[in-house]
């Protein structure tokens, strides 16, 4: 008679290494929720205004708007410690700056290329920095911020300052080689970094499916032993919850982690993109069904916040944005002598 088959256990397979817990949506108090709403709305109105100023010729060059993705930067950065944690991103950077508490006036004045801009008017939309607020740019080369952000994480570890670096990049940048060079070293050296892939579905005009052999981008760290979590990037509380989980992982010294934020941008890649690669209906469906601001507004209403209070918030934000725009239009351009300053720090 044949041998009896080996007995099988009904246990699920044990992962061969530790994994982060599945994040749970953040349980925000009413005040916290309101604060998140204000930040998201500020970004939305700020970006709409930037779009207008671009149309009027006040803003030039490349200008990439964050409309539709607000929940990502706001949800994630609300979990960071602004005293020690650093943030770095690519060229779609206005939202991350506003979410890190940088004055809308100096951002808008940078967009219009004025002396009062955060980079004295010499950087523009894609090149803005605030070392004071630990915001390290604002980088125009797709994917560069991933290696640079890994360098910031290296600094946190080297100095033992307890900080974590958060490096944002898009689904397009996720195909750049230096991303994987950085993943390798970050895990090898257990650097404190959260890699945030803002998957807004389109790398300029190329959809994720057309550009990525593995379109589940949260898995992109697997061969480096970096765990990844896929997150609803249209839900600010899901974003915040994921950030909490990621921070716990990284702060415990377990090395890097990847968050893939499923999100969507409503506008073109930049102001000069007519977005012919997707249908009007597709964009409208996202706006109608999963708008991140509508979502948080509903949550606020459920918590008993009155429509009238939300209107007051809306008015205050419009005022802030209008003031920033007026300032940015009126404040002077850089002095011509600024052409030659800041090329080098020292004199030789």
């Amino acid at each position: 008679m044949a041998k009896a088959p080996a007995t099988r256990t009904a246990q699920p397979p044990v992962p061969n290494r530790e994994r982060p817990n599945e994040p749970v949506p953040y349980a925000a108090s009413k005040d916290e929720l309101l604060a998140l709403y204000k930040q998201m709305l500020l970004i939305r109105r700020f970006e709409e205004k930037a779009g207008q100023l671009y149309g009027l010729g006040f803003i030039g060059g490349f200008c990439h708007l964050y409309i539709g993705q607000e929940a990502v930067a706001v949800g994630l950065q609300s979990a960071l410690d602004g005293e020690k944690d650093s943030v770095i991103t690519g060229y779609r950077d206005h939202g991350h700056m506003l979410a890190y508490g940088i004055d809308p006036k100096v951002i808008m004045a940078e967009l219009t290329g004025r002396a009062a801009g955060i980079s004295k008017g010499k950087g523009g939309s894609m090149h803005m920095f605030s070392t004071e607020k630990k915001f390290y740019g604002g980088h125009g080369i797709v994917g560069a911020q991933v290696s640079l952000g890994t360098g910031l994480a290296f600094k946190h570890k080297y100095s033992g300052d307890g900080g974590v670096a958060m490096a944002y990049f898009g689904d397009g940048a996720a195909n750049q080689g230096q991303v994987y060079e950085s993943f390798n070293m970050a895990e090898l050296w257990k650097l404190p970094i959260i890699y945030v892939i803002e998957n807004n579905q389109y790398a300029m005009g190329t959809s994720v499916n057309r550009s990525s052999s593995e379109d589940q981008l949260y898995k992109r760290g697997e061969s480096f032993r970096i765990p990844g979590i896929q997150v609803d990037g249209m839900d600010v509380l899901a974003c915040r919850g994921a950030a909490e989980e990621a921070l716990a992982w990284v702060r415990a010294g377990k090395g890097p982690i990847i968050l893939e934020m499923k999100t969507y941008r409503y506008r073109g890649h930049s102001m000069s993109d007519p977005a012919k690669y997707r249908s009007r209906e597709e964009v409208q469906a996202v706006r109608d069904k999963s708008d991140p601001i509508d979502h948080i507004k509903k949550l606020l209403e459920e918590q008993g916040v009155q429509e009238e209070d939300l209107k007051t918030v809306e008015q205050a934000i419009r005022k802030t944005v209008n003031e920033a725009a007026d300032f940015a239009e009126q404040t002077p351009e850089p002095d011509v002598a600024e052409l030659y300053t800041d090329v080098l720090v020292e004199r030789y």
Binding site: Y136, L148, K155, Y158, Q178, E181
Partner: peptide, 21 residues
């Protein structure tokens, strides 16, 4: 010691310099 990954470690070094090292 770094892996053979010039683009990556040049970026990490540059980022560390931006961070103050």
């Amino acid at each position: 010691d770094t892996p053979i990954t010039e683009y990556g470690f040049a970026g990490i070094g540059t980022g560390a310099a931006m961070g103050g090292l």
